[in-house]
Amino acid sequence: MLWGLFNLCSCIGTDIVDDFVEPRLSITNKIEVMLAGDSYQFEARYFDNTGKEQPVNFNWLSSQPGVLGINENGAALALAPGMATITAVFDQLTESFTVEVLDPAQVDEDSVRMMQSQNGDRTAVLETVSSYQLEGTAILRQSTPLLLVLSNDFATTDALPGLYLYLTNNTSSIANALEIGAVTQFSGSQQYEIPTGVGLNDYRYVLFYCKPFRVPVGVGEFMP
């Protein structure tokens, strides 16, 4: 009877995870310069209040349509030298950035092409969100394949039973996160290959997560 009584009470319960994040709009392939006469397809993504990407239709606006025109699908055409601010809009969310349109007759075209292709690395300063040590720098490096690099200053603990790396847009949950792998080296430089198809700007954070106990351990926000 005693045995039965207690085991009847041993049901699997429910933990509620506070996983709300502010919805976010992100233009994922920004460029700073264009040559007059060139076209470019801008792309944007919308992440809902759990950090999950949702397909939506954006409105695209140009502050100077005579300099840089853009249609409702984000296809832009550089018309004349000057500066223009491109804005993507969905619901109440916006993101803007400035593009300079150059006269191809007055600049080195190869240099501009190189500037356009150079999406700089994204860097995150790591900090613990737990009582476990976790510090250092993570770099999301533009390469083929994309690499997540932990710098020499990286340090954490080997006391956790299962520390895993994720790329995510929600640091409270791994529901829509990309699992990179288990951490097996607890200090110093190391790198992890990111699966093909993942873009440099697809994720906002690097997350260190104790998988068995399902809790965040440390996090870093990528900049820019």
Binding site: T14, D15, I16, D19, T50
Partner: peptide
Amino acid sequence: LQYEQVSGTT
């Protein structure tokens, strides 16, 4: 046992 985790948002 381990409890399930449910989104407080959705």
